[in-house]
């Protein structure tokens, strides 16, 4: 029983990380129709920047949070403006390949700028153990769950009530009409990239605190694909739920079946989902198909 509870707890924590990154995928896909293969790498770069800030200010959590969020926004806006914006009218293969090219560059740049070794990231009391009725978890693992729920609530309110959120939904449902109504799709795209970078940055930093900071952090992006496919590529909140489901499934498979299968469980789920229900659990039924 305790074993199961531990698996569930760590599954929910890692699932929340996947969920945050999956939300970033979905936000960008929803507002621009582009899947950013470099999202995990962006989260990783933000985590490294946060680590650099934290070592120079002795881990003051407020400065680290402000600095890394500021960096995330600027970084995403720069990437969007310089690399992505000129490619938006190109065919889908070019768009995919540009983001893949970015991901390869980021992955190499991390090792060239920082190094290839794992680091311990200590901010506030993030890696202290907390006892929850017999199950011991790290504070950062709780924090990432809290962050996920905050992000879900924030996104829901944003899309529902804010003027900008409504504009984003309008661009998502019909680009041309939204532009005729006076919505600037360029601004919507900038906002989507910034929001996605902040979410995946939060995921990267909290993952680094709970486990470790290493150049293999980008794999979180790959692991978040199943989550966003399961939830629906255009369903922001659905993707978050998908993340939790994938995280728990992975841990249960790893705990009860085999640890090798744990690594690919998500990818098996992708193929099953795409065969049965390609638009995901919560997505809209308008996928390209023949």
């Amino acid at each position: 029983m305790n074993y199961l509870a531990e698996l569930l707890a760590s599954g929910l924590a890692v699932g929340a990380v996947y969920g945050l990154i999956a939300m970033s995928f979905a936000i960008i896909y929803k507002s621009t129709g582009l899947l950013n293969f470099a999202q995990g790498e962006m989260g990783m770069i933000i985590a490294y920047v946060a680590w650099s800030i934290s070592t120079s200010v002795d881990g003051n959590p407020f400065i680290v949070a402000l600095g890394s969020i500021g960096f995330a926004v600027l970084f995403a806006l720069a990437v969007e403006r310089i690399v992505i914006r000129p490619m938006m009218s190109e065919p889908i293969l070019s768009q995919i390949m540009v983001t893949i090219g970015l991901s390869v560059i980021f992955r190499s740049a991390i090792i060239l700028i920082w190094d290839g070794l794992p680091h311990n990231m200590a901010i506030a009391s993030g890696n202290q153990l907390v006892d929850l009725g017999g199950v011991r978890v790290r504070a950062a693992q709780i924090a990432v769950l809290v962050a996920l729920f905050a992000a879900i609530a924030g996104m829901w309110a944003f899309f529902r009530y804010s003027r900008f959120g409504v504009a984003m939904r309008a661009v998502a449902s019909d680009d041309a009409t939204a532009q005729l109504m006076g919505v600037s799709s360029g601004k919507v795209q900038m906002a989507a990239w910034a929001a996605a970078a902040v979410l995946s940055g939060v995921a990267g930093v909290l993952f680094a605190i709970a486990y470790e900071l290493s150049p293999s952090l980008y794999a979180l992006g790959l692991k978040a694909f199943p989550a966003t496919i399961l939830g629906g590529l255009d369903a922001v909140i659905g993707s978050a739920v998908g993340g939790l489901i994938i995280g728990v499934t992975e841990n249960l498979v790893g705990g009860y079946i085999s640890s090798g299968l744990k690594e690919v469980a998500g990818f098996v789920i992708i193929i099953l989902i795409l065969m049965v229900r390609p638009y995901g659990l919560f997505g809209e039924k308008r996928i390209e198909r023949l």
């Binding site: 899947l35 889908i92 790959l222 496919i229 992708i270 390609p278």
Partner: peptide, 13 residues
């Protein structure tokens, strides 16, 4: 049945 993006993801998986 899949094209574009979705095919890229299944082949990756």
């Amino acid at each position: 049945r899949l094209t574009g993006l979705y095919l890229a993801i299944t082949t990756l998986a």
